[in-house]
Simulated assay, not measured.
Amino acid sequence: MRALVVHQVGPGVAVQDMGRPGFLAKGLTRGGAADLRAVYEGAALLRQSADLAVLEMVGTGGTFEAKEPLRIALTGAAMTVAVDGETVAWNASHMMPAGAKLVIGPSRDGTYGYLHVGGGFDTDAVLGARATHQSVGLGDLVSAGMILPVGPDKGRDVGMTLARDPRFSGGDLRIVPSMQTEDFEPTIRDRFEETAFRRDPRANRQGVRLDSDGDGFSNPKQLSIVSEVIVPGDIQITGDGTPFVLMAECQTTGGYPRIGTVLPCDLPRVAQAPAGAPLRFTFVSLAEGAAIQARADADLRRMGQSVTPLVRDPHDIKDLLSYQLVGGVVSATDTPLDEG
């Protein structure tokens, strides 16, 4: 049986995929992985579809055992990781022999780490997806004792890596105008762009609270806002002037005014920012935002072209002497085929 046995697991670990599009009118947001870029990275490392389900880990992972040989990849927030006691590289793909123990510990940067398997996790699909949507009760968090089925693996490549993307320490975010942007005074909008925000520890898959020094960003017209459709990336301003960036499992409607909306390609930077990380916002026009997003989507589709072989440091190879290091070596001066 192709499966991964869960021996121990941290809080909030769940099976995720690209989510469930098309159900917003029925009261269900898309959900899916908090960092979709990490899903594409794992798919590129394993040379498989980004639609396959992965394991999303929040802050820490757990201990897992392969029932059969499995190809794995590790992306997102870098965590301590070892296979049968030997440290392996993050943002890379590896082979897990049958019976091998994979131990994934605390994150060293970012928030969400991802474990991918060749063939994807083959849990039951609900409404066309395997994503766990905690806020509406679709799916269960992963717990110790679970056996996670793995689908057929059509690939063979392992020992591949991707350059580390710099999205794990906050940074600059591009936003487009939203429905209520013009309701905010120009001075408030300008101050919003000039403000150095910090990611508040109060954050989850529904939204991220932002802290800042100075006055809040209250909208004088906010009491007249009628509840309307909202989407991930919207920046709601609460009654006390505090901004919240809505994330993958946000509600479908809301009555707080929105000062702007984070571009989807920048949203992983919000998701991965650790508590206290700096975040700044810059307005771009809808046309500029569409062009930026189109380029980002094209980059995701081409990500497989950026995968390179993982070169191990001989210092880190415990059984270096067991390797055949000189097989196939020939002399540049001695040409035995010319003899005789």
Rank of each mutant, 00 (worst) to 15 (best):
L223S: 14
P21L: 02
A3W: 05
Q206W: 00
R156L: 13
H315D: 14
G207T: 13
D297I: 08
A33P: 05
R174N: 13
P257C: 13
L28I: 15
V13W: 00
Q293S: 08
V83P: 01
E288H: 00
D35H: 06
S212C: 15
I230N: 05
E194Y: 00
R130W: 01
D319I: 11
I188Q: 07
A275N: 11
P274D: 14
R198K: 12
G19Q: 03
A287F: 08
P257M: 14
A98P: 00
M303S: 02
V5Y: 09
A77N: 01
R108L: 15
D299R: 13
R205H: 12
V326D: 12
G42C: 04
R199K: 14
D124W: 04
L337H: 10
F184S: 05
M160H: 07
G105H: 07
R198G: 04
G137P: 10
D200M: 11
L115N: 01
G27A: 02
L286G: 00
S224I: 13
T261C: 15
V117K: 02
M1Q: 11
Q324D: 15
L141P: 01
G12C: 15
L28D: 02
A44V: 03
A129S: 15
D153E: 01
R280N: 06
L310Q: 10
G145S: 05
T60L: 15
R199N: 11
G233N: 07
V126F: 08
R30V: 15
I235F: 00
D213W: 05
Q222P: 00
D299W: 03
R189P: 06
P149A: 03
F283N: 07
V229E: 03
P336I: 13
V88G: 13
G99E: 08
G59S: 12
P257G: 07
Q16R: 08
Q236W: 13
A73V: 02
G327A: 14
D122T: 13
G105Y: 02
G145F: 11
P11N: 12
E249L: 07
V245K: 11
I188H: 04
G32Q: 07
D316C: 08
G159K: 09
T63V: 15
P220V: 01
V176H: 03
L28K: 00
L162K: 02
R199E: 11
A203P: 02
L138D: 03
V39P: 03
S285T: 15
E182A: 14
R189W: 04
V326M: 09
P264R: 00
Q324K: 12
D35G: 08
I292F: 14
S306F: 11
E249G: 01
L310C: 12
S178D: 14
Y40I: 04
E182P: 01
D240H: 05
P152Y: 08
P106M: 02
M1E: 12
F281P: 00
P220Y: 06
G99L: 10
R209I: 03
A43S: 06
R191Y: 10
Y114N: 12
G304A: 00
T195G: 12
G137Q: 09
L310S: 03
F197K: 03
A129W: 08
